[in-house]
Design a protein around this nucleic acid. Structure first.
Lengths: 262, 262
DNA sequence: TAGTGGTCTAGACCACCGA
DNA sequence: CGGTGGTCTAGACCACTAA
């Protein structure tokens, strides 16, 4: 009595099923075709938040699929935060507020999404011997060659971030692929992927400090202004360190957005 | 030729299989029993990083399981970042550096892990009518009652964070469960869970600014010192807003650690 | 070519929930 | 009690990778 049950549409999934065409000859897995169609129906409002879906057995036979395949499609959306399932209860569409894309949104994505076109300038790109400290964080021998990259990211004509990246030469082809023009056009991570590196995980630390006179000038802030700092170590499939980045953001115009499931 | 293949132990999993006892009468799922045993063997060094595991069919029959069950155990560890699988290649144990716990580490966990025992003081706990702005973020009517909680977190005898939390009274029993003594002992989220609320997702924004004189005094910093700010909205299963928090951290002594899979 | 993981099927039994 | 999702089985075919 204390809580009102959310709105329930008994079998609205019917509308969906009519329009859903599965392509069994497609290389796209069936469970993924179903999941995409379901998610599209949800984001387009065909299945509004709070809708209770038919149970997985019924849905499976309506689509001509086995239960495990239907189940996998639904589980995919549960992991994505779009659906919620409770044993003995059923499956429901979650409220839209909870449906932000997961993970840490990158600077570029944020700015692109807000309509301002960000630009990148390569301030410096060279090969240097690693200092003891950098060698330790990159897991290479001190003095071995590493690529050092400094970029300035701007949005709406104003500088917003200075990004320093250090890349060990332990990954073949990476050092050669680093090119100022390519970096300004497509971003560091795209370049890294283009040489066949599979990014696997990243450790990031976010902090803050006040700006030095030099930093303030570069970012168009006052001396002593608050800056956000982010340091990131990225690993590939084999556990090799691909990149270490130390970035600086003007806090008055930038913040990190982070969405996660409990 | 360009890259050396990682160390491979052909069938070391044998050692594991000898000690693995599956309890089919346990309420713990078989796939989870297997996954836990595998993970334990990995963290204890029985299966060192880089080890190639036997294929899932072989492992399944050695354990007397079906392939889907064995597969699910392995997939669980892949999702957790402990294993890496590649079609046509096999399954391998990832390097330990990549294996930090995922997600945003909380203040309490960080401090507890580093040996300093954090303490919490409730500065204020009252029920007030919601301002227009707060009502909007909490999704309630302006003027409706909300709980307002202000806490001071300290570590090693020094204040480190001021946390303001706003909780709407839309969830039955929550307002009554908020108790200064309980909050100092077990943390806000534990109290929330104790009244049967299933946390589902959270949106967080991390930024920075300089401290006002008052904030600096409270946190033991100089005026104008850099502060980290974090705002969080937490949702439950039904998409209801459970809590909104606006927190302030002394940046000289605190930072956020964030680990994620690509 | 041989071996791997990726996908899919068609059943089965159980634990949990609400009425 | 009936309905739900959670787990498990014993097969099958396919795509990708390396040698």
């Amino acid at each position: 009595m204390s809580e009102q049950s959310a709105p329930v549409a008994p079998s609205d999934a019917q509308q969906l099923l009519a329009t859903l065409r599965l392509d069994r000859s497609s290389p796209v897995p069936l469970y993924f075709q179903v999941a995409e169609a379901l998610e599209k129906a949800i984001t387009e409002g065909v299945l509004p938040p709070g809708t209770r879906l038919d149970n997985e057995i019924l849905l499976a036979e309506q689509l001509g699929l086995s239960r495990p395949t239907m189940r996998r499609a639904m589980q995919y959306l549960v992991d994505k935060g779009v659906l919620v399932r409770r044993r003995g209860i059923g499956t429901r569409v979650v409220q839209p507020k909870v449906r932000r894309p997961l993970g840490l949104s990158s600077l570029y994505e944020d700015l692109a999404a807000s309509g301002q076109k960000p630009t990148t300038t390569v301030l410096s790109l060279k090969v240097e011997p690693a200092t003891a400290e950098l060698a330790a964080t990159l897991g290479v021998e001190p003095g071995s060659e590493i690529s050092v990259l400094v970029r300035l990211r701007s949005a709406a004509g104003r500088p917003i971030a200075r990004m320093c990246n250090y890349l060990p030469h332990t990954i073949s082809g990476l050092a050669e692929a680093l090119d100022a023009e390519a970096l300004e056009r497509q971003g560091l991570y795209q370049v890294i992927r283009s040489v066949g590196v599979q990014l696997h995980a990243a450790d990031q630390t976010i902090g803050a400090r006040t700006a030095t006179a030099e930093e303030a000038k570069l970012l168009g802030e006052r001396r002593g202004a608050a800056l956000l700092t982010m340091q990131r170590t990225a690993f590939d499939d084999h556990g090799r360190i691909v990149e270490f980045g130390s970035h600086l953001y003007a806090a008055s115009r930038y913040s990190f957005a982070l969405s996660m499931l409990a």
